[in-house]
Nucleic acid binder design. Structure first.
Lengths: 201, 201
DNA sequence: GAATCTATAGACCGGTCGGTCCAGTTGTCA
DNA sequence: TGACAACTGGACCGACCGGTCTATAGATTC
């Protein structure tokens, strides 16, 4: 929210945490590694994030959510057909994963699975992020003429498929699970979109 | 594979690790916690798993994969309609998550996202598990008359949706993401199955 | 230019981490 | 019954964990 915050150490810390979440999750990295990546000493981190590691993670999740949202909005604006937009955007994630040697996946997924019900702030931030994500997709579909309820459900399926396909590709060291998932899903989506268009005509 | 292995400490260790993987992932738990759960001292674990924590994790993944496979086969046998079978089986996972206060998800997903490309054995075991899982579903669909390629893709989508929906439900503390995902997916699946039946007639 | 606040810097801490080592116990088979 | 392997039990280790603390440097304000 505080967009006027001076860029610098704080953002470098968030960036380094974001990076680590993509690669190994929250418990997979030590503070020392994050601090090293961000070129920052310890004190400065507890200055900006008094709550420590978890606090920084929440900030990184929020930054990640904002970034995902922005990039999705961008492809939506560039492609009139929702199916095309989703395909492009999915391709981005897929290429990032592949180019990194199957190291970099979704920054939200790993920490989601490491979190316990006690991690209130963490799960809150994550739930909000995924919720916003689903809503964005649902709005896209509703805008293409699909009914509200069906758009919501379809959006849930799309986001689920997105996360799940990245998990599988990651461990397989192969893009095939993503490609198979996307091809089938987009095929079904196009039928859905065609039906929506027809029933409006 | 060694099914004649005497039950006892070794299995208790695997069980405890399996449990932890569901709840917090690999790095989220210390050996001491696992050892405490399994009521076993340290030495015994390095006797059965010379490779340490990672070694035990691989064994737990293999055990988990076998368990998932068995339970899926069971519901498949009990329900002639593939869509019904998947619905029941998804319901099991969903209930386990809910009953545990959104603590217990898929035992494979968390460690998948924590793993790095260097964790060869780990990713191998995981890739094999997910692959077997997809294959099982694909066979089920092919058996219902859906073409081979389409069955493969649809299976990838189903497994992806399964994993992704559990992630979202977990952080949301709500079953809604799972319900939405399943309802939409099974609706599409039923159409697919009807088409397959028709084109065979 | 003293006071104050924000930010940087890193030494330091107790605790826990994964892992090693070896001394006992138990089971098995000659 | 003696030998030997499989297994159990836990003390012990150095490394690293997340976190605290104090010192100081720059900026801002009166």
């Amino acid at each position: 929210m505080k967009t006027t915050e001076a860029p610098g150490t704080r953002d470098r810390l968030i960036g380094a945490m974001f990076d680590s979440l993509q690669r190994k999750g929250l418990h997979g990295v030590g503070l020392s590694e994050i601090l090293h990546d961000a070129q920052a000493p310890k004190g400065v981190m507890y200055h900006h994030f008094p709550g420590g590691k978890a606090d920084l993670a929440v900030a990184a999740i929020e930054a990640g959510a904002a970034q995902i949202k922005a990039s999705l909005l961008q492809v939506i604006e560039a492609h009139a057909d929702p199916a095309d937009a989703l395909k492009i955007w999915w391709g981005h994630a897929h290429k990032r994963l592949e180019r990194s040697g199957f190291e970099r996946g979704c920054p939200l997924a790993a920490i989601s699975l490491e979190s316990t019900p006690d991690d209130i702030a963490l799960r809150d931030a994550l739930a909000q992020a995924f919720g916003a994500f689903r809503e964005l997709v649902a709005d896209l579909l509703a805008g293409a003429g699909i009914g509200a309820k069906r758009s919501t459900q379809l959006a849930a399926l799309i986001v689920s498929a997105y996360e799940g396909s990245l998990i599988q590709a990651r461990v397989a060291g192969s893009a095939k699970p993503v490609n198979d998932t996307v091809e089938m899903l987009l095929g079904l989506l196009r039928i859905e979109l065609a039906n929506a268009k027809e029933s409006r005509a």
